[in-house]
């Protein structure tokens, strides 16, 4: 199974906060609504979102997500970075859109 650092390499993501890079990525969940992620994401999933505020870290911790990928060139807020560092949550960014990132990742996860 692919790990966080395999995915960073294969689809070219920028590391903003480096948490556990050897976590297994079990799948992916896309959402910009925190309540939706709380309700439907599963343990080990990589989370693609546009949200940048500190609450995303809490959601990732509670749901046991493998990492957060922020798309469209948005950057995590300074407080989000601090919180992620203290919680050991990996935050990655990309200038690509959510659709493109998902398209590339879907292909990658399926080919494994």
């Amino acid at each position: 199974m692919l790990k966080v650092n395999d995915i960073i390499e294969k689809i070219g993501l920028d590391i903003r906060v480096s948490g556990d890079m050897y976590k297994h990525v079990t799948g992916c969940y896309i959402s910009d609504l925190l309540s939706d992620v709380m309700a439907h994401s599963k343990d080990g999933e990589l989370w693609i979102t546009l949200q940048t505020h500190p609450n995303i870290v809490a959601v990732a911790v509670i749901k046991g997500l493998s990492c957060i990928v922020i798309t469209n060139g948005r950057l995590p807020e300074p407080d989000t970075v601090k919180k992620a560092e203290s919680e050991n949550i990996t935050i990655l960014t990309t200038p690509k859109t959510t659709f493109e990132t998902a398209g590339l990742l879907y292909n990658l996860l399926r080919s494994e």
Partner: peptide, 8 residues
């Protein structure tokens, strides 16, 4: 408001 798709 963020959960309604706005306020980002």
């Amino acid at each position: 408001v963020r959960e309604m798709g706005w306020g980002a």
